[in-house]
Design a protein around this nucleic acid. Sequence first.
DNA 1: GAGCACTGC
Length: 698
Amino acid sequence: MDSMATLPIVQYEEKIIETVERNPVVVVIGETGSGKSTQLSQMLYRRGYADSARIAITQPRRVAAVTVARRVAQELGVQLGEEVGYAIRFEDRTSHRTRIKYLTDGVLLRESLVNPELNEYSVIILDEAHERSLNTDILMGLMKRLAKIRTSNLKVLITSATLDGDKVSNFFRDCPVLTIPGKLYPVEILYSKERPSSYLESSLKTAIDIHVREPEGDVLIFMTGQDDIEKLVSKLEDKVRSLEEGSCMDAIILPLHGSLPPELQVRVFSPPPPSCRRIIVATNIAETSLTVDGVVYVIDSGYVKQRQYNPSTGMYSLDIVQISKVQANQRAGRAGRTRPGKCYRLYPSQVYNDEFLDVTVPEIQRSSLAGSVLYLKSLDLPDIDILKFDFLDPPSSESLQDALKQLYLIDAIDENGAITSIGQKMAELPLEPSLSRTLMEANDYGCIPEALTVAAMLSAETTLLPGRSKTEKKRKHPEPNLPDGFGLGDHIQLLQIFECWDQTDYDIGWCKDNGLQVRGMLFVRDVRKQLSQIMQKIAKGPLDRRRGESRQDYRNLRKALCVGYANQLAERKMHHNGYRTLGFQGQVVQVHPSSVLKADDLGKFPDYVVYHELIATPRPYMRNVCSVEMRWVVPVINKLKTLDVYKLSGGTGPVEEENERNIPDLPKKNFEVTAGVDDSESRIQAARERFLARKGKK
DNA sequence: GAGCACTGC
């Protein structure tokens, strides 16, 4: 473990304090191992910055907030939760004595909903801002405003990456930039002469070369996904086994990705047997989230899987894209934590220099912004206009308009773009707007208990385990004993599953027997409790049913869903089971094969459904659908007709062409197949890269 | 015959 004295940042203390003293905002470029996350807060604490109010340090991840807080408490010799504490969702370990508070940036956003001036804090440090999470980006905008309003009693520090420092400084009115060197050992970068024809084969060959020729030290290989990881692991195992015994040291191959059960994930943290090399084949999870000790060699494919949102179609896609320079350097740095290392980049230096973006496209430019726009509107800051909100990297106006349209259709904002009383209540719920709107409607229909459960289940996403073996994958549903939603759809099934679990008194064994992720289900229980507490203030009826008293009639719940998902409606095509989405450019989509939605005796799906999500993988699917009735859809369609983006944007946006929207005339008529998936530039680019990456594997 | 990078309130 590092002792404080060896951390590079310690020598910069005077300089840092002096700069902070003179400036309301300071950008700190702290390279890996500089100790910024643990030391900045302590320095300011020592100099009295926490005397009148607290020091807040945000982290993008929960584990980071907890581990760094624990570490600082230890260094200061205090009990965690006393002078040093942390706050993450479901867990607040702070007290009135807390001076240094670590928290996730999501929690700080929630806090600023209650107190927009954040008077509780005298210093706010946004750590790891270079990761550019959606929440960090919103916080940066808010900090810019706050620094101006509270010049006399607030200091803001933003930590960033080398390649981004000047830009962040420009954003904060050319505030000073301090660079603190890291404590990494040198990493030699080795480029490939050309792009490999196969990343899999090239990774395999490089890994075996290292294993045979290089001295001891673990190997970390960055791949894009579970599939590639599994293939490479098995090839590596074959190859290592075939190496002549005694000709080199032993090797164990370890996969590492998010859908790996936790007990297998932790294997990478236990030390290897003596004279045995570990070869870890990982996704991006090993780039920032998990740090594996002992890595000396890194193999970098140069690719990552990234989720992107297309605001003109309302569709998400998961694309394989090239990483940024920041990411490539972060990956390389993983080789230099314990001693000098090597990084094998499976691409030429020219690709790195000319093709890689400096920094990763920020999440704010890749996501649906409905939730964020609602959040900003609910803050009701007189001096902030959402469409002109000062973002470090502003999202496209198309994306902002999409968010406004969505919010208007679910009554969160009025025709002039002003937040409504419904919208104000929705913003308090830590949910996507469609689900918070569903809860509001459920309140009127007397089905809060059910809506709470559905919202909580959808917050977790991964409660149903995927098939565990190849043969099991053939089965349509993982476990036959689970309820089927009466064929009405996935929302109803999720509700029934939770109700079953509730009846077993939250039995862990029951989850395991039924192929449900234990962690996911426990998370759902926590979320439901949290939502229930928030709803208590406005609930017109009970928040829970008596155990076993489940409502078998899901009509009201489905009506509430129809209102909440007004943006996510689809109409079945007359002659087959394809659907066409309403409201966006008409997308032809299918019900995801994993859905429990049932067709009628004639083999037809319901005429109308709501969907939780559209995902192109690469074919367009609706994931998590629920059947609704036409007469519930009518008001939504009528509202679509009144939509005026120009007014919604406060009369600043461009006027939208009427025919861009897919608004059916009722009664229902047959629609021509006009448009498939929208092929915007980015999708073509993504498809090209996917093609290149796939081509390599064959 | 479908497929799932990673976070977070």
